[in-house]
């Protein structure tokens, strides 16, 4: 908060902050040059999270806009992988016809993120790199066992798992380039967010079995150990919402997600 004569006590915002210089690379070469050349550059994808960071004191001197680097906003699909560019907006990615065909459960889950106004601008990469436990992409991609590919200074890629983002011992490279989802037989996906932010749960199914990840508003995603599906509860039975209730809720969501997958077979 700051006291502004004539206006009173107002929350700090991007207003009145000295504008940063802006670099807008158009390809990989100029992007790498911008990252190497600027002092503490801050990457801007959609900017929707950065706006909140301004309120908590972010004062960048150089912004590097990612919106003109076409290769960051592409979806590439071959027989081995689905590759989602880091600067794909939620609206563009979740409505991509090929993605909707190949992985409809994931496209549906992606489409449920945020609201229509945000979805047109916010990106999958910004969602991950904001490192915000209440943002959902990290959970979805943990369940999918996706790989995050970062651009190395030499133009090659450095690969990380989504969980690595949350590991302080594992430094995160500067620029997320794309997210890769391996195509495999029987790949299907279900997501339950009706209890968000208390608990959200994603299940990925393939020939190897079901892979479930769970997250809460304050904790990054964790993979569930092999669930005993037959023993899962199917209703929320506890009106006083005890800790027991929350544990049970996780089980209910898992049972529902698995039922979704069974129905979509």
């Amino acid at each position: 908060m700051q006291f502004v004569p004539g206006a009173g006590l107002i929350a700090a915002s991007a207003r009145g902050v000295p504008p940063a210089s802006v670099i807008r690379p158009t390809d990989r070469t100029s992007l790498l040059a911008a990252l190497a050349g600027a002092r503490a550059p801050v990457l801007v994808a959609g900017g929707t999270h950065l706006a909140a960071e301004y309120l908590t004191g972010l004062r960048p001197s150089t912004l590097v806009g990612l919106d003109r680097v076409d290769e960051l906003a592409r979806i590439d699909i071959d027989t081995a992988e689905i590759r989602l560019g880091a600067a794909l907006t939620h609206a563009a990615g979740a409505n991509d016809p090929a993605l909707c065909r190949l992985l409809p459960g994931f496209a549906d889950a992606w489409r449920s993120i945020a609201n229509v106004r945000v979805r047109h601008w916010a990106t999958i990469g910004g969602n991950l790199m904001a490192l915000c436990t209440r943002y959902e992409m990290s959970l979805l991609l943990t369940a999918l066992d996706a790989r995050l590919r970062f651009l190395a200074p030499d133009g090659g890629f450095i690969e990380r798992a989504p969980a690595d983002l949350w590991n302080p011992a594992q430094p995160t490279p500067a620029l997320l380039h794309h997210i890769a989802i391996a195509r495999r037989p029987g790949l299907a996906f279900a997501y339950r967010r009706e209890l968000r932010p208390v608990v959200t749960l994603a299940v990925c199914r393939d020939a190897a079995g079901d892979r479930a990840a769970i997250a809460t508003e304050y904790l990054p995603p964790v993979l569930l150990p092999d669930a005993n599906i037959a023993a899962l509860p199917t209703d929320f039975a506890d009106p006083v919402s005890s800790a027991w209730y929350l544990r049970r809720a996780g089980g209910v969501l898992l049972a529902r997600a698995i039922a979704d997958l069974d129905r979509s077979r």
Partner: peptide, 27 residues
């Protein structure tokens, strides 16, 4: 709200709604 939550600053950019508080002028 100055953080893209409330939408009172909504403008249309090429027809798409966006929060003017959360976008930079260059966009």
């Amino acid at each position: 709200c100055a953080r893209g939550v409330c939408g009172s600053c909504t403008v249309l950019i090429d027809g798409a709604p966006g929060a003017a508080c959360s976008l930079f002028a260059y966009r």
